[in-house]
Design a protein around this nucleic acid. Structure first.
Length: 1046
RNA sequence: GGGCGUAUGGCUCAGUUGGUUAGAGCGUUCGGUUCACAUCCGAAAGGUCGCAGGUUCAAAUCCUGCUACGCCCA
């Protein structure tokens, strides 16, 4: 042997060496192949907001595992990498940092400067993310790395938008958003928190007016916490059939302060008979529930108006009449005053009101009606939602586990139009140019909502032929304001056209698209769609291998067996939309399987995140345990449940002691800190930052927390989890098994194995190997990774190492028997390396490489030259590990041997007999069992340092023996002088009791008439067998006891 | 409010279509310098499977209700 393996596996060295080797040899590259099926995995594009966490590590590991296995199965397997610009999240991080560090807001620096800063941020984090992925061993085709804002994606986004626009599936509409009047931006629902504030509850009334428009004495009262919104009331609403108001429904009331008359309508969802007066005022433009009510009545007979009162800065606009220009809170005070003056105010009470605040400015948000862009999901011509639902229902797309299909279908089934515009600067600009044309307001003209395909002579005059079909107009006439809004949408790649529009007075819409719009196109855009003439660039350079055609797209979309691997929180936002756009643009689904893996939670059951202080950087774990260990452990988590708990400790940087975490409650959030934290959050004035005090060495250190930026000069605790020892120990165990094997392979010669030379243990390990291989494959086909790792580990540790390797040691020392057993050993090891390659690729490659030197040609019955890299080897399946190797009967016989060995070891342990003390064994059993045991007698000596003296039916228990009983044999070990008679008696008495209980319950079962008559025959027969076995053992035990008692 | 999921030894989890003496890893206890591995080997203790009903010859497994927790959507 050239060089003996070290006793411990060094993951860091192997990682560096092999990752570079794989990359340099282009093993990760996937290109169109004519003679190979293709397999595609599109990475769930990580946000460039920050670094990857454990959830990403799990997600990435599983994708890599699948991809590596597919490669070995003969697929051209593509794992497509890339990152997402993550609009609002990234812009928010950059803006916040800019404000904290320089006191600047985005308005101070302007659109271009902000976007530049975000690009810089992106470069940093994209690099970080990609290097993290590489450190987990990700075998992505890095040449194809995409970013959702890059040129290739930009084209796909523009084309899709244009197509949708042209097809009439995109429209402009109103929507209530959370408006941050301080920052003058809309904030997403998850960026809003609710906080109780002291407010008031005002009750006042409006008077009903008669047909002639005169106020009557009838009044309707109601209460509100926001009286200023009355200026935008467009109805009063009561519960349908409420006796108090039946006569009034359909009539009108007059708003006292502006004299506007509004209808009284019925709505079961908005009004509550039981609450207050049962009537509510409806302000559609300033309350989400009222807006929903408004939508319910659109197009109906009792359709109501909608009036916006707010300016973007929080002051009231012209619709507020005399209150115009005042801040909303000033208006509130004045309204209350004015109502009181008019005698309309009935009562005021103090009340604590839950109020939504912006996470970013900490000021209250206003529901604000704004213009947004929508994609119609349920258009009769193109029912986008329904098409995506059909793909599930007819089986083109399958979820694993299947229950997640419900999440997908339920959400799509709502068929809610998709709001695709965001009031941000970071993202794809909406490719629509707007021109507002003032017109004479003509009262006789009826309001028309759309005038399709209105062309603009100012523009069309300049159009060349080449722009045909690249420009599409849509006009909306707003009669209330006497204007026509003309929208022009431009296809991708027509910069000149955009210039023409702008010189004709068109202005590009300032909004950007929802991040999910570009990520919805991920499976197409990364493969170069809509360009049908060129393959997508490689490493930024043109790829002309397609010979004037895009061959990559048809090869890998959707691939013969493409799968998406993701976590469940984006099934609706992302998965559903990829299917939807895939069908719309490509006419085919983007993948056939969707595997939804668990979420990783901390020890308290909370999701992990940086902002909670419980986020773990996988790279820290990899440094400590090695990539393979982290991969194997994390893979063992991935079953069919939703969540997995991963308790995390802090590790003292001075002495490596582990410190438990604890939950720490702040006002609105709960964070995780060390249980031995010194100090408090928020940091009291003048106090030092909180530190972690080590319980052992008492030294202080910093710990990762979202509450302040760490000081780079002070030692920092890292997050750690003992769970990863599982994977590390496994890797080390396997390493040593291989090490042992290789130490005994110096003079290995390849050759076909003669079945006659196979011993019991050889046949057994091959039988077990075959079972394991097929079990693992079945688990993997069902995406049950936890089961796969379990099977592998159990086989390798508990069967291959514990039994097989131990059993073949004598033969490896015997020159005559050596060649045959070496071949079996090499064959099994070879299969294991191939099995492990997708799970723990580095250790597999390292050992493959070393085994290659000793045994370049291997294979059990038909040795062949092995491959250069395990990456290129054939995946173990029915072709190379036949099911025929499985032999139940043989495994049963082997089981008896194991049982005997365990019983002997037990005797040694109980009586504390050192292994060096030789023992003798007598087995009482029938002749068949006796001959079986005699055949393997050498193993008793080998495995438990005992000599099988005799076996047969006429064996008598030697006096002073320790005894054990099994179903078909009893064992006696003479230990005169070494054991205490009373101790042995007690041991046997205990055994007797146990058997007595088992017999009683089994007899009870068989005594039950119903059981015997109704249960299937084989079940009854099995129970009878079991009982017979118990009874036989009891008999033996009783005999032993009686002998001991003599 | 709706949906999904989870409650199994101290901890983290397995337990396939109901039929096993309910398993594993870690932790605990006892014993080990056996020539691959102390990141190891051998042995042991430890569970009325969240609670209450029901179906069945038979329930950790199926059904109903309840409780607790988690996630998603509103």
């Amino acid at each position: 042997m050239s060089q003996e393996l070290p006793k411990q596996y060094d993951p860091q060295a192997a990682q560096q060496k092999w990752y570079t080797y794989w990359e340099q040899n282009g093993y990760f590259n996937a290109d169109p192949q004519e003679d190979k099926p293709s397999h595609t995995i599109m990475i769930p594009l990580p946000n460039v907001t920050g670094a990857l966490h454990m959830g990403h590590a799990l997600n990435g590991t599983l994708q890599d595992l699948i991809t590596r296995r597919k490669r070995m199965q003969g697929f051209e397997a593509l794992w497509m990498p890339g990152t997402d610009h993550a609009g609002i999240a990234t812009q928010a991080v950059v803006e916040r940092r800019m404000f904290e560090e320089e006191g600047l807001t985005r308005r101070d620096i302007g659109r271009d400067a902000l976007v530049n800063r975000i690009w810089k941020w992106k470069e940093t984090y994209e690099g970080r993310i990609l290097s993290q992925l590489k450190s987990i061993g990700a075998s992505c085709d890095w040449r194809r790395t995409r970013f959702t804002l890059d040129d290739v994606c930009e084209k796909a986004v523009r084309r899709t938008f244009f197509k949708l626009f042209k097809d009439g599936l995109i429209y402009r509409g109103k929507r209530l958003v959370n408006w941050d009047a301080h920052l003058q931006t809309a904030v997403a629902d998850d960026e809003v928190f609710s906080e109780d504030v002291n407010g008031h509850f005002w009750t006042y009334h409006y008077f009903v007016v008669d047909e002639n428009g005169n106020e009557t004495d009838t009044k309707i009262s109601f209460s509100t916490t926001r009286p200023e919104t009355m200026l935008g009331d467009t109805a009063v609403c009561v519960y349908p059939g409420d006796e108090r108001y039946t006569d009034l429904v359909g009539k009108k009331v007059r708003i006292p302060l502006n004299g506007r008359d509004i209808p009284i309508i019925e709505d079961a969802f908005l009004a509550d008979k039981e609450k207050g007066t049962g009537a509510v005022k409806v302000t559609p433009a300033h309350d989400p529930n009222d807006y929903a009510c408004y939508l319910r009545h659109v197009g109906k007979e009792d359709e109501i108006d909608i009036i916006n009162l707010l300016n973007p800065d929080g002051t009231f606009n012209e619709n507020a009449g005399e209150y115009e220009g005042l801040d909303r809170y000033a208006v509130r005070n004045k309204i209350v005053e004015d109502l009181e003056k008019r005698g309309c105010l009935e009562s005021v009470e103090d009340r604590v009101v839950p109020l939504k605040h912006s996470d970013r400015s900490k000021t209250p948000v206003e529901p604000y009606l704004s213009d947004q862009w929508f994609v119609a999901m349920d258009d009769p011509k193109q029912p986008l939602s329904q098409n995506a639902m059909d793909a599930i229902e007819d089986g083109r797309v399958k979820f694993y586990p299947g229950r997640y299909a419900k999440t997908y279908l339920d959400w799509l089934g709502e068929k809610r139009d998709w709001c695709i515009s965001r009031q941000l600067w970071w993202g794809h600009r909406i490719p629509v140019w707007v021109k507002i044309i003032q017109r004479e307001y003509n009262k006789s003209e009826r309001e028309t909502k759309h005038e399709d395909s209105h062309s603009d002579p100012d523009v069309t005059a300049h159009l060349k032929d080449e722009f045909k079909g690249k420009l599409h107009f849509q006009s909306t006439r707003d009669d209330r304001n006497g204007i026509t809004i003309r929208l022009a949408c431009v296809d991708e790649g027509c910069d000149e056209l955009e210039t023409i529009l702008e010189s004709a007075g068109y202005v590009q819409d300032p909004d950007v698209l929802d991040t999910w719009f570009s990520s919805a196109l991920w499976p197409q855009e990364t493969l170069g769609w809509p360009d049908t003439d060129h393959n997508p660039p490689l490493n930024g350079e043109p790829d002309n291998s397609g010979d004037g055609k895009n061959t990559v797209l048809p090869s890998f979309y959707p691939g013969d067996k493409s799968v998406l691997v993701t976590s469940r929180d984006i099934i609706t936002l992302w998965v559903a939309r990829m299917v939807l756009t895939g069908l719309y643009n490509m006419g085919d689904v983007p993948f056939h399987h969707v595997h939804v893996h668990p979420k990783i939670l901390d020890g308290f059951g909370q999701t992990m995140s940086k902002s909670k202080g419980n986020g773990v950087d996988p790279v820290d774990l990899i440094e400590k345990y090695g990539t393979d260990a982290v991969r194997f452990t994390i893979t063992s988590f991935a079953g069919e449940t939703q969540d997995v708990r991963l308790p995390i400790n802090y590790e003292c940087p001075h002495c490596e002691t582990l410190i438990d975490p604890k939950l720490y409650k702040l006002d609105t959030i709960t964070i995780v800190v060390p249980s031995s934290m010194k100090g408090a959050f928020p940091i009291p004035q003048g106090a030092a930052k909180p530190t972690m005090v080590c319980t052992k060495c008492k030294k202080e250190s910093q710990f990762p927390t979202p509450m302040y930026t760490p000081d780079p000069d002070v030692s920092m605790a890292t997050m750690d989890s003992e769970r990863f020892e599982y994977g590390r120990n496994f890797c080390n165990k396997f390493w040593n098994a291989a090490r042992f094997a290789m130490m005994n392979l110096e003079d290995y010669t390849p050759g076909a194995i003669d079945e006659a030379d196979l011993r019991l243990e050889d046949r057994w390990i091959l039988s077990r190997l075959s079972s394991m291989v097929h079990e693992v494959n079945e688990y993997l086909e069902r995406y049950q990774f936890d089961g796969a790792t379990r099977s592998l580990r159990d086989f390798i540790w508990n069967e291959f190492c514990d039994w097989y390797l131990e059993m073949i040691k004598p033969r490896l020392r015997d020159e005559e028997q050596k060649p045959q057993v070496q071949r079996v050993l090499v064959g099994v090891l070879d299969t294991l390396l191939r099995m492990l390659a997708p799970f723990t690729p580095f250790i597999a490659e390292e050992l493959w490489d070393r085994l290659k030197e000793l045994a370049p040609s291997r294979g059990l019955f038909d040795p062949v030259e092995t491959t250069e890299s395990v990456t290129l080897a054939q995946w173990p399946d029915a072709d190379n590990v036949p099911r025929q190797w499985q032999d139940r009967a043989l495994e049963m016989r082997f089981g008896r041997l194991q049982e005997t060995v365990v019983a002997i070891r037990n005797v040694r342990a109980v009586y504390n007999i050192p292994p060096s003390t030789p023992m003798k064994l007598y087995m009482k059993c029938n002749e068949e069992v006796a001959s079986d045991l005699t055949d393997v007698s050498a193993q008793f000596e080998n495995l438990s340092r005992i000599i099988l003296e005799a076996a047969g039916a006429d064996i008598e228990r030697p006096p002073g023996s320790a005894s054990f009983t099994m179903d078909d044999a009893d064992g006696y070990i003479p230990l005169e002088g070494l054991i205490d008679k009373d101790a042995e008696l007690a041991r046997q008495q205990k055994e007797k009791e146990k058997l007595g209980k088992l017999i009683k319950s089994t007899e009870g079962k068989l005594g039950n008439e119903n059981f015997v008559s109704k249960a299937p025959e084989e079940v009854v027969a099995q129970v009878r067998d079991t009982l017979a076995g118990f009874k036989k053992q009891l008999e033996s035990v009783e005999e032993i006891i009686s002998q001991l008692s003599e």
